[in-house]
Amino acid sequence: MRYLLCYNFFKVLSGGDHLVMDEELEAAFLKEQERRLAASTIAGYGRNLNFVRRSYQGEWPGWVHLSTAQIRAFFIRRQKEGVSVATTRYQATTLRRFYHYLLEQGLVDQNPLVGIQFDEVGGARGNLPNYQLLMESIEQNSKRATLLERVATYLVIETGMRTGELIALCWGQVDVTMKMVLIKGEDQTERYVPLPDDLLGLLSQLEVAYATPPTVRERVLTLANGKPVSRSWVERTVRRVSGGATPANLRHAYLNKVVLEQRLEDANRLAGHKTLVATAGYQQGQVQDLKKKYQQYF
């Protein structure tokens, strides 16, 4: 296997196809992980590598030529799009393992992820605005927002949807009778989340605004030209309506509110997390608040 990789590496240096080389590298890396990782983890690594390669802006330089600055720029852009810290860490872990493998094969001189502090890229959860503060800001700013913009913003803070889940949401997933919404994750998981009355009212207004009743397969967030909204549209809209918060900030505030109500297992299910460990991270803000109160009185 190593001789094959080296042969393809020199083929790329002499003008070969970057994409062919990259796909072979990814396949060899995933094959190597079969001895130590679960099949679901390997599948997740494969999706992460494919996503990073496909979503790269500009001409793709190839894995062996990707620099630290380019990787840092990618993760900063992802954070600005409203991607959660957990997702950023997961993708970073995948890339670290992948480049460690490339180092072992002698295909790169160093791991380009060395020196990138993902806590700084993603931001600290303890400093994020709380649910009540964000809701007050949204209620104030939503007076100047369109109906579509209000629906998008409230869907995030009232259900904890991720940006990708929000964009893909169809009318068939909204159950007005049961006051529930079926959220379909990018990893094919599904979860039901309750819809408060105020959000149901906004969704009803949006549905009535259609010239013809929307079908179950039509996207909820659709522009006037009939196209679904983009990630950049969601990012700009949420920032403006919320007074500067990102979609990830709103999702965090929603989940943190549920955790504060001593419903960690509910928060885990509503968040779509696979483990309670991921959800427990939302308790960090509570610990910081307790420390401040302790220092104040003692």
Rank of each mutant, 00 (worst) to 15 (best):
S137R: 15
T177K: 14
M135C: 07
A124L: 10
N130Y: 08
R125H: 06
T68G: 09
I71W: 03
I76H: 05
T177H: 12
G115H: 00
I71H: 02
G62K: 08
T153I: 03
T177Y: 10
V181E: 05
L166M: 14
V174S: 06
V156C: 09
R150P: 13
E158M: 09
G106W: 06
L182F: 05
V151D: 00
P61C: 08
Q140T: 11
S55M: 11
G122A: 10
W171Q: 13
A69G: 06
T68C: 12
Y56H: 11
N127S: 02
V156R: 01
T159E: 00
L182W: 01
L103V: 06
Q117H: 14
S137Q: 14
M178E: 15
R144P: 01
F74C: 01
Q70F: 08
L166Y: 13
G172W: 08
G126Y: 04
I167L: 03
V156F: 06
E149I: 09
E81M: 13
R77K: 12
N111A: 09
A86G: 02
L95Y: 09
Q91P: 02
L134G: 05
E149H: 08
V181M: 01
V181Q: 02
L102H: 12
Y154C: 07
V108H: 07
L166P: 06
K179N: 00
V151F: 04
G58F: 02
Q173F: 03
Y90P: 04
D175R: 09
I76W: 02
T87V: 09
R89V: 12
Y56V: 00
A73T: 07
A73C: 03
D175I: 13
N130W: 07
A73P: 01
T94Q: 05
S67V: 04
G164Y: 10
R77H: 09
S142N: 00
E149T: 05
L113R: 01
G160E: 10
E59A: 13
E158A: 13
V151T: 04
A168R: 13
G82N: 11
G62N: 08
I71E: 06
P61K: 10
H100T: 12
S55K: 14
A152Q: 12
I76P: 00
L182K: 03
A168H: 09
T94A: 08
G82C: 12
G164T: 11
S137W: 07
Y131N: 10
V121H: 00
W60T: 02
I183C: 03
L113I: 09
R125T: 09
E104L: 14
P129C: 01
P129D: 04
T163L: 02
T163N: 06
V108E: 03
D109H: 07
Q79G: 08
L182N: 07
F75H: 00
L134A: 07
T93L: 10
N127G: 00
L102C: 13
M135V: 13
T177L: 15
M180V: 14
R89K: 12
N130R: 05
V108I: 10
I116A: 11
Y90D: 11
V114T: 14
K143S: 06
T163F: 02
G115C: 02
E120G: 08
V156P: 01
T68S: 12
I157M: 14
